[in-house]
Structure formats: structure tokens, C-alpha cells
């Protein structure tokens, strides 16, 4: 099972990287999301896969009854998902605003901060 998930992680990260190489902001954003999901899946796999029960202590006991799944990767992934979601929504709004005010979805034409026709540096002191 680990091998299958490892291949899936590789596919996710490859797809994400491919999208990130695009010039279109929306594709780059999708690439980042796919990349992030690949990373989350990697943490999940790194926490060892088990077929055990969810890590919940039954009522009336102070420790779990028998082996349970590793809860730590789940906590890590939950944190990463929440943060990734926040970043994604911010970047989505940013890309939309940029589309509105810069009229550019293509990063090649997005040259306000770094003008293309910037002058040569002065030659004298």
C-alpha cells in the first residue's frame, strides 16, 4: 500500500510542478494546490499506514483499547490543510484583483514592478 501511495505522491508533485511552470496565474495556483495535496499525502504516508481504528479513547477508559492509528500525522495534515486553504484563498483573491487592475493573467505581461523598458544604469558618478 505504501508503494501505491508513494507513486500517487510522486504524481501529485509532478503534476503540481508542471502546472507551476505555466505562465497563467490560475494554472500556477492550481499547481500549488495539487503540490500541497501531494505533500499532505506524503506526511500521511510517512506516519505509517495501518488498518487500525481511529485514535479515539473509548468512554470510560483512560487509554485506547488496543492499537490505534497514529494521530500525529493527522494533526500535522489538518494544520497544513488549514494553512494551505488560507494561502490558496488569499492568492486566488490576489490573482483576481491582478486580473482586474493589471489586466494580466499571464505573468509575462505582468511587468509593473519590474518595467521591461527600464533604463540603463548611469555611467558616471
Amino acid at each position: 500500500m505504501d508503494f501505491v501511495l508513494a507513486i500517487v505522491v510522486g504524481l501529485f508533485i509532478a503534476t503540481g510542478s508542471y502546472f507551476l511552470l505555466s505562465r497563467s496565474l490560475i494554472r500556477m495556483l492550481l499547481g500549488l494546490t495539487v503540490f500541497g495535496n501531494g505533500v499532505n499525502l506524503l506526511i500521511f504516508t510517512a506516519g505509517r499506514l495501518t488498518r487500525e481504528v481511529a485514535p479515539i479513547v473509548p468512554t470510560g477508559l483512560d487509554q485506547p483499547d488496543g492499537p490505534i492509528a497514529n494521530p500525529l500525522p493527522q494533526a500535522l495534515i489538518l494544520t497544513a490543510i488549514v494553512i494551505g486553504f488560507a494561502m490558496f484563498s488569499f492568492l486566488l483573491v490576489l490573482a483576481y484583483r491582478a486580473y482586474q487592475s493589471l489586466d494580466a493573467d499571464n505573468t509575462d505581461t505582468m511587468r509593473v514592478a519590474e518595467p521591461e523598458d527600464s533604463p540603463r544604469p548611469p555611467l558616471s558618478y
Binding site: L20, L25, M28, L32, F35, M87, F90, L91, L94, A95, R97, A98, S101, L102, T107, M110, R111, V112, A113
Partner: peptide, 16 residues
């Protein structure tokens, strides 16, 4: 607009 431009490059690469 210049801030949006800068923020996009800053945001994407730092998130990556």
C-alpha cells in the same frame, strides 16, 4: 497595481 504585481511574485514563490 504595483503592489499587486509585487505581491503575486512574493506570494507564489514564498508559498512554494
Amino acid at each position: 497595481p504595483i503592489q499587486l504585481d509585487g505581491a503575486i511574485k512574493y506570494g507564489f514563490l514564498n508559498f512554494l
